[in-house]
Design a protein around this nucleic acid. Structure first.
Length: 497
RNA sequence: GGGCCUGUAACUCAGCGGUAGAGUACCUGCCUUUUAAGCAGGGAGUCGAUGAUUCGAAUUCAUCCAGGCUCACCA
């Protein structure tokens, strides 16, 4: 018998013993009068008034000492010590106490007292087992020194932390906090948009065609319809249909799926916010991006200057705006504003930038930007005036036929958002998508496909508008100071065991 | 996909050619104010997997599996 099954067998024997004692290890109900945090709001008062309290939680430490014993009881709000004496608990409760394991859920009725060493504790008069632990939880012991928690035998194996996230959350409370922050960030987005009359909507994840981004999709199959469907790579084209339909301000927060590589900034499914607002343009999207993110930071931290891996990031508005060509010039000394393909090719070759032989000047400029500029943009920067060639859904720049009204926003060298003044001319849109299809035929398997249904919707008329996408996982990484996307996704994709 | 590193008890780790170890957790005993409780005793492992070398492999070598970092690819 291996060690694990031995430990489990021991729990099983305790379970049988409990049954023999007439104790239900998994009773129907529990009762509590106080969450543990509320005991600490005025612990002296509880002691003076000898108030009866009833608390519930999980046992995470047990110290027996002859005919007395101590437990640490933890609920989601805090931790309190339970003091058990064989002469103050009811009947067979001390026998129950002896059978309790770390990980058991327990209800404790009693009064708050102060022990000889000065610790406020609940002196138990009655113990009620709420749920028996049948598989030992890994051991982690903690000691507080000068307000700092020193942890012994920390549960730190990264793989097991991701695969058995419940143990990670249980044993590493600071990781639990990351997901609480994540929830508050998403709530902050909803609050910000709802206050501005945006409507939250849901569009299909299963789509007969995919679009709205350059990416390879996941394919699945519907049996009854006997057809392949794609998991969406973006919500863009459906949200635009809704603006055609008269919803002037819509947003969606949801998962996108991209069948591409995985690394510390890419998970195959990731959460994005997309926002569409009629009768505004790129400037409106800049306003939302800056306003929303700086507001969220302020609400979370009380400041807009945050630390990310030792670098101070200042999220105070306004953020820098600079055109892609300007930035390329700033970081390479080269001016490519004439879109001279031969010069671009020569430059890429000289700098060892690998390029697709079909790439036009716009794509090359973007490649050069990625290589020389992107990771230098530490403080929030809106990079504007993108090449039309790589922006099939954005409206033409008024002054330059090679450019469109688009920005991507960069912080700490990574992209956090992407926005356009949205292309609403159906003739132009068809031309762009057909060009994409041509690129596809030439081997670009990330190029867009022609979505006739979307083009038909545009024919009916779509108002001028701005649209914005923000990668939520990466924003959470930024605001929780994490460098791996797996730390901010509860159940990140893992290879099978 | 390339490079580097890691995989030993439930957890954290040591051992790096000669009988598988420690602390915690678990079990037994003692202990009526402990808090990483303590003391004494005990049980617990296919040393990631498969091959090879060797009298002998957790240890050396090869391959594979899983993970991390990093580069490439990718938004």
């Amino acid at each position: 018998m291996d060690n694990e099954s031995q430990l489990i067998k021991q729990r099983r024997e305790k379970y049988d013993k409990l049954l023999a004692m007439g104790i239900d290890p998994y009773p129907l109900r529990s009762e509590r009068t106080h969450c543990i945090m509320s005991l600490w709001e005025n612990e002296k008062d509880f002691v003076e008034k000898e108030q009866e309290v009833s608390v519930t939680g999980r046992i995470n430490a047990k110290r027996r000492q002859g005919k007395i014993g101590f437990l640490n009881l933890q609920d989601s709000t805090g931790r309190v010590q339970i003091f058990v004496r064989n002469d103050t608990v009811l009947d067979d409760n001390y026998e129950l106490f002896k059978l309790l394991d770390l990980g058991d859920f327990l209800q404790v009725d009693g009064k708050m007292i102060r022990t000889q060493t000065g610790e406020y504790s609940v002196l138990a008069s009655k113990l009620t087992l709420l749920a028996k632990n049948m598989r030992p939880i890994p051991t982690v012991k903690e000691k507080e020194v000068d307000g700092k928690i020193i942890r012994y035998d920390e549960f730190s194996d990264i793989e097991i932390r991701y695969r058995k996230r419940y143990l990670d959350l249980l044993l590493n409370p600071e990781h639990k906090k990351v997901f609480e922050t994540r929830s508050r960030i998403i709530q902050g987005m909803r609050d910000y948009l709802n206050k501005r009359a945006f409507l939250e909507v849901e569009t299909p994840i299963l789509q007969p065609l995919y679009g709205g981004a350059n990416a390879r999709p996941f394919i699945t199959h519907h049996n009854t319809l006997d057809m392949d469907l794609y998991l969406r790579i973006a919500t863009e084209l459906y949200l635009k249909r809704l603006v055609v339909g008269g919803f002037e301000r819509v947003y969606e927060i949801g998962k996108n799926f991209r069948n591409e590589g995985m690394d510390r900034t890419h998970n195959p499914e990731f959460t994005a916010l997309e926002v569409y607002q009629a009768y505004t343009d790129l400037d409106g999207m800049i306003d939302i991006t800056e306003g929303m993110i700086s507001t969220i930071a302020q609400d979370l931290f009380g400041t807009q200057k945050i630390d990310f891996q030792g670098t101070e990031i200042n999220l105070e508005r306004p953020w820098r705006k600079a055109s892609m060509l300007e930035l390329v010039k700033e970081h390479t000394g080269e001016d490519f504003s004439n879109f001279d393909l031969d010069r671009l090719k020569a430059f890429c070759k000289a700098k060892n930038i690998e390029v697709d032989p079909h790439a036009g000047p716009g794509k090359l400029i973007a490649e050069i930007f990625d290589t020389f500029v992107e990771d230098k943009l530490i403080q929030p920067t809106f990079v504007i005036d993108y090449p039309l060639e790589i922006s099939p859904l954005a409206k033409n720049h008024p002054d330059n036929p090679n450019l469109v009204e688009r920005f991507e926003v960069f912080i700490n060298g990574a992209e956090y958002g992407n926005a356009f003044t949205e292309l609403n001319n159906p003739i132009e849109q068809r031309k762009r998508l057909e060009h994409q299809a041509k690129m596809r035929e030439m081997g670009d398997d990330e190029a867009n496909v022609v979505d006739e249904d979307f083009l038909e919707a545009l024919d009916y008329g779509m108002p001028p508008m701005g649209g914005l996408g923000i990668g939520i996982d990466r924003l959470v990484m930024l605001l929780t100071n994490n460098v791996s996307i797996k730390e901010v996704i509860l159940f990140p994709q893992m290879k099978p065991e």
